[in-house]
Design a binder for these strands. Structure first.
Length: 599
RNA sequence: CGGGGCGUGGCUCAGUUUGGCUAGAGCACUCGGUUCGGGACUGAGAGGUCGAGCGUUCAAAUCGCUCCGCCCCGACCA
């Protein structure tokens, strides 16, 4: 490709919209890979599109290698299908909805479980047709309330989503594990280091899920990592080994569990925080109970109702809303407003379930609470607390569940070692859906015994643009991008400088004959401009043909990001370039290796 | 959705507080000249409904109201 013909320009300054944002965003804009159209909506310019195509080719190769068959499903779906699975009602404004010309409800694809399952119920009759793996690369629309950081979080994006279809759970497990490894291969081939973490199933529903995370402070997810045993999880679902409460059975040095002591009401004027309470009464925060109030939208029968949720965790811990939401099977969860709290008889800052009417709410206590005797809790009266509240004696809950958040320093649920917390961007995920969709849509097959059974599904996604952005995030320096050869829009950046015109033209042709992908900077620009642009674009190998280089004995080869360059005789240049690219590819290939599966 | 910020040539911004000459600069772009290995210099140009609408005023980029868009923080988020 002759750069003089390239449809994009570099920017000397980053547009202000990229201020304070991700480095990947600034460089992709400046280097002319992407252009914004609206909030969270981007065009890929030729360079960006080529890089995305490279990623897609890697994805296709790895999907095909595990038996995937590519197809293509529509972006616009009749809403009826989404009504059948209920997600039409479960999902809020994030879903794009419109009507067609005759007034039929339509939706824009957020994902394709519904459509896949509809295909399955129409095509799959027999166990003999299973297992299957189908995938496509298709546009998704998710009307995210807050797009940010360039391509990292957008509203319209291309996603590879694959769907496994099996007759039994063993088959699902096999395909799930195949994806687990294939995903590592994909990311490694792109030069990106990721970790797999246990994750929440969220709106997908299902049984088990992993997310593939690129670790960066830019990430929006918090991950809990144990260096000792390798436990990894998204904070949303991270378990933790809970420390025993003071006075509880099993507390170190405690001869026997503390006996419940009588309730006692004490004045605690102006003390409405756990910290203040612990100081005021001179007890550890672990000896207190923290109350958190939320409004949950839950489905009762065929309608949604808002329920007041009274959550209780030990004072030294924080509530994990995802865990709580899952515990009460909430479609939606939001903090309760003060008037809603007062309406059930609780006093904000001084609340506990003691003495409240359990019919007005869902009381959920963390599973540590029943094992923690004599906690200080609110008296539901401003300025007063209760000493020695005991679960079971003074109040009970509708649910006892693990609802506290793991954080840095929490004990690992597997080995007890203090865990680390890191931020990460989710570049891929895999879900064991099970029969969530095939049941809802009646996608059944006949097994060997003639029994009708639902097909067992898995779904597996990778965001192409987000992956591109993460690679850009991982590979840039003060001068611009530094693409891994597998993702770079072109392998070679050939610079034609004064005195080297004829030789450069010849070399461009020769490299083309070798099948190399070359961006040929044939522009009539000053050398400084061309070098700056070359650094900005970040192609892995730069080849300079100039009077100076020719006088020095040939052409100059330089890897992006490496200071040193070397002169190669003109006659050997094409071969040397080819070898350099092979070397770069080989180095990247070293990254691809089996990764142990971790449930 | 809450809080904050911004909207002036393609890009970065000045001008808005205190209304008033013809709306400016740098970069980029076009043509010419000098340059030519790390974002040159110079001469001449082209390019703007000052986000939109309504209003106040003799007069609005500037003041008021309404709306729209974008960015940041939060809520949210396979």
């Amino acid at each position: 490709m002759r750069q003089s013909q390239l449809f994009s320009t570099t920017l000397r300054e980053a547009p202000s919209e990229a201020d304070a944002q991700a480095a990947s965003h600034r460089w992709l804009l400046r280097a002319g890979f992407i252009r914004p159209l609206g909030a969270g909506i981007y065009s890929l310019l030729p360079l960006g599109f080529r890089a995305a195509r490279k990623i897609e080719a890697i994805i296709r190769a790895e999907m095909n290698a595990i038996g995937g068959q590519e197809l293509l499903m529509p972006v616009m779906h009749p809403a009826d299908l989404w009504k059948e699975t209920g997600r039409y009602y479960q999902i809020g404004d994030e879903m794009g909805r419109f009507r067609d010309r005759v007034g039929r409800d339509m939706v824009l694809a957020m994902t394709h479980e519904e459509v896949v399952t509809d295909l399955v119920r129409k095509e799959i009759r027999s166990y003999r047709q299973l297992p299957q793996l189908i995938y496509h690369l298709q546009t998704k629309w998710r009307d995210d309330p807050r797009p940010r950081a360039g391509l990292i979080r957008v509203r319209e994006f291309t996603m590879k989503d694959s769907y496994s279809l099996d007759a039994d759970w063993e088959g699902l497990d096999k395909q799930y594990r195949a994806h687990y490894q294939a995903y590592f291969n994909i990311f490694h081939r792109c030069g990106l280091d990721v970790i797999a973490v246990n994750s929440d199933v969220g709106m997908m529903g299902g049984k088990l899920a992993h997310e593939f995370m690129y670790l960066t402070p830019l990430g929006e997810d918090t991950l809990i990592l144990c260096d000792a045993c390798g436990y990894t999880a998204n904070r949303q679902v991270a378990r933790l080994r809970k420390p025993p409460a003071p006075g509880a059975t099993g507390e170190r040095g405690a001869a026997a569990p503390a006996e419940p002591r009588p309730l006692e009401k004490v004045a605690t004027p102006g003390v409405n925080t756990i910290k203040g309470l612990a100081e005021f009464l001179n007890v550890p925060a672990a000896q207190t109970a923290k109350a958190v109030f939320l409004m949950a939208t839950v489905t009762e029968g065929d309608q949604d109702v808002d329920k007041f949720v009274f959550a209780v965790v030990r004072g030294d811990m924080d509530l994990n809303e995802t865990k709580l939401g899952n515990a009460v099977q909430a479609k939606d969860l939001r903090p309760a407003r003060e008037e809603e709290i007062r309406a059930v008889g609780a006093a904000p800052g001084y609340a506990s379930p003691v003495g409240l009417n359990p019919d007005k709410m869902i009381i959920v206590v963390d599973d540590l609470i029943p094992a923690a005797p004599n906690l200080v809790a609110g008296a539901n009266e401003a300025g007063y607390h209760l000493l020695n509240t005991n679960y079971g004696r003074d109040y009970t809950a509708h649910l006892v569940a693990d609802i506290v958040a793991a954080e840095a320093g929490s004990a690992c649920p597997e080995c007890g070692t203090p865990v680390r917390a890191e931020r990460g961007v989710e570049v891929g995920n895999i879900f064991k859906l099970g029969t969530r969709y095939t049941n809802a849509l009646g996608a059944n097959y006949l097994d060997k015994d003639g029994q009708s059974k639902p097909v067992i599904m898995g779904s597996y996604g990778i965001g192409v643009g987000r992956l591109l952005a993460c690679v850009a995030e991982a590979y840039n320096d003060a001068d611009g991008l530094c693409w891994p050869v597998s993702v770079a829009p072109y392998q070679v950046h050939l610079m034609r400088l004064p005195g080297g015109e004829a030789a450069a033209d010849d070399l461009y042709a020769a490299l083309g004959r070798l099948g190399l992908e070359v961006l040929y900077d044939d522009r009539d620009e000053r050398p400084g401009v061309k070098f700056k642009d070359a650094d900005l674009l970040g192609l892995p190998l730069r080849v300079t043909v100039s009077e100076r280089a020719l006088k020095a004995g040939g052409v100059e080869l330089k890897r992006r990001g490496v200071k040193d360059s070397r002169i190669v005789p003109l006659a050997e240049a094409a071969g040397a370039v080819q070898q350099e690219i092979k070397d770069l590819e080989a180095a990247l290939g070293q990254r691809v290796a089996p990764v142990p599966y971790r449930e």
